[in-house]
Every structure is written in structure tokens, then in C-alpha cells.
Amino acid sequence: MTTSEKIIDKIKYLPTLPTVFSRLSDAMSNPRISNDEIASIISSDQAAAIKVLKVVNSAFYGFSGRIDTISRALLYLGLNEVRNLIFAMSVINLFKKSHSLMNFRPAEFWSHSIGVGIASRLVGSVMQIQNLENYFLAGILHDIGKLILFEHAGEDYVKVLRIVEEKKCLIIDAEKEVLGFDHSKIGEILAIKWKLPPTIKNAVRYHHSGIADGSTEKLVAAIHIGDIIARTLELGYPGDDLVPEPNEIVVEKLKLTGSLFKDTFDSILKNFEETNKLLLSD
């Protein structure tokens, strides 16, 4: 078995997502389900429900203390947005207890992913996307393959991290050198296993180029730019401290200008600080 095959084999046995999320997904497939029934499923996991309310009332959504029940959160944000938020929190919890390896620490990894989620959502809103529900979740998941490799590629991943340190290169280049493939491929396999929507799967697979299968999907493009913004502003640590060049085609396609940052620098940092604290606390 090659390293790639061994890891793919291990993915089959990865823990499934917590019960509240599975129950929620099942309930949502019933078109007749009411908001109250959904709210009671979410509220059955008190810790998750409290966290949802905290995030909803933080600067991230800007409701500043006005939403005090899950029913209201569903009403204001919509079912998909709340479900994705719970998904994001579930995935973070699932891998929170991973150990540190050299200078790669799971908490810093998640901080980076939270940063990418926040920055990508901002890019999406600048692009005037009406429905931003997948942007934060795609940011949270974009590098999930790294965590799988980190946990299951053992000694090989130590080699990857050593190369990053010695050559001061991007972690993706070191992964390709040692393993012959990179984390985006592993992330894609997990996205398929978890039956994520194709746009999120593509964002996980193609966020380095920002282009999926020759076309510029908006979500993929936004995650590409969000990753670069998070790296520029040092939001968390993705495994190396370099800032890759933004894909020219993506910048043109999204019509991104310098003004994107003029008024958002402070709010990205503030949102990041607050959301990071909320999602990474117990």
C-alpha cells in the first residue's frame, strides 16, 4: 500500500460527525419539518446551542445581543446558515484534541481556518453574493486534509514540516515532495465521504489556484483570496508563513480592487479575534 492508499483507507474509519448534526441533517430532509422542531433538536445539545447563540450575537453576524433563542436565530439567519455553523463547530470539536507536531499546533490551524472563513465571507459580500451560508463553512474546511495527513501520515508529515522549516517553502510544496500528493486531495476525499455540496468540495480541492476544472466558481475563488488575506494578516498558522501570489485570473474575475481592505482591515481583525475565542473555547 502506498502512503496515499493507507491514508485513504484510514479516512474510511474517521469518526462521524456528532449526533446533533446528523439528526439535524435527517430532519432537514423532511420538507414538512417546522422551525420549532429544528430548534428543539439543536437545543437538545445545550453546549452547541449556547455556542450558536454566542456566535450569532457576536460581531461576525452583528446582531449584538438581540437573538436570545435558537428559534429566533433560525428566523433571522435561516436554517442552512445555522446548520452550517453547527457543522463548522462539530468539525472543530472532532479534531480539537489532535496533538501538536513541531510548530504545527491544531489550535493555530483552526485559527487560520476561522480566519479564512471570515475573510472569504467578506470577499463574498464584496462580490454581492446574496447567499453567503457556505462561505464560512468552506473556509473552516478548506485545509481539513492537512489535519488528516497530520494525524495519519506520521513520520512522513514530520518530514514535510522539516522541509518547510529548512527550505522556507509552502507546506503544499513540501507535501508534494514527500508524499507525491497534497492535502487538498485528501480534503476532497473527506468532503465526498461527508457528502458535502460540490461547491464546498471544489473549494477544498482547488483553493490554491482558485479555479475549479477550468472555470471560476465564486466560492472557490473567494476561498482562494480568503486564504491569502488570512495569511497576509497572520490569522492563525497554516503550517508555513508564506503568502502566495493571488491568481491574476481570479482577481480580474472577481473585480477585486485595493479598496477591499480600506474599510475592512479593522473589522476582519476584530471579527477574527472574537469568533476565534468563541469557537475555540470549551
Binding site: I228, I229, T232, L233, V243, E245, P246, V251, L256, T257, G258, S259, L260, F261, K262, F265
Partner: peptide
């Protein structure tokens, strides 16, 4: 865009 990114960094 890139110049602005540099400034922010």
C-alpha cells in the same frame, strides 16, 4: 489589489 494586500501585510 496586490499593492493593497502588501500594504495590509
Amino acid at each position: 489589489f496586490e499593492k493593497s494586500l502588501f500594504e495590509m501585510g
